[in-house]
């Protein structure tokens, strides 16, 4: 991943985004020229409920600085309740991370609809700022995992 000229730390974020809402919201952010940090890599899911923690863990253990799971607002999931099941799964993951001394703020879950391009850009800026404060993911430098 390229670093900018000042050598400032640029967080790498992996975004797992639901097709119907957040992915479309991200698209809208692009077409309406919202500014947000370039360090996000997007993975397209049909529903936030399709996320398995194994993929989040893979991203984190491979050194991603943050993982953002994006889904439809409660009540708007196109598969009824995928997002509410995802919320439980991620709450569980973060609790486990906390018990084991892993930084749970490296996983966020956000509800962003297809029309909320601006909110998508704001969220990425917010996460980027928070991750800059936290610093690089220490797992990035670990071979013995």
């Amino acid at each position: 991943m390229s670093e900018n000229s000042s050598n400032e730390f640029e967080p790498r974020i992996v975004g797992f985004l639901c097709h119907w809402c957040t992915y479309t919201g991200a698209d809208l952010a692009g077409t309406t020229r919202q500014q947000y940090p370039a360090g996000i890599r997007i993975i397209h899911l049909m529903c936030s409920g399709a996320i398995d923690v194994v993929y989040i863990l893979k991203a984190l253990l491979d050194g991603a600085d943050g993982v953002l799971v994006g889904g439809c607002h409660p009540g708007d999931c196109h598969y009824q309740t995928g997002n509410l099941k995802a919320r439980r799964r991620i709450a569980l993951l973060r609790s486990i991370m906390e018990t084991l001394g892993l930084d749970q703020e490296r996983v966020w879950l956000r509800w962003i609809s297809a029309s909320e391009g601006r909110l998508f850009a704001e969220t990425i800026r917010e996460y980027d700022g928070a991750l800059k404060q936290q610093g690089a993911n220490p797992l990035a430098g670990e071979w013995d995992l």
């Binding site: 409660p74 309740t81 509410l84 099941k85 919320r87 439980r88 799964r89 991620i90 709450a91 569980l92 973060r94 609790s95 749970q104 703020e105 996983v107 966020w108 879950l109 956000r110 509800w111």
Partner: peptide, 30 residues
């Protein structure tokens, strides 16, 4: 956290298969 005790009852749903409308927003990093 999920107020669950494995093996306690047949009727209590397994936590991964259920949810409440308003719960765990902070815990999930929302």
């Amino acid at each position: 956290m999920m107020e669950y005790e494995p093996g306690r009852s047949y009727d209590e749903p397994a936590p991964a298969t259920t949810f409440r409308e308003n719960e765990f927003a902070k815990e999930a990093g929302c």
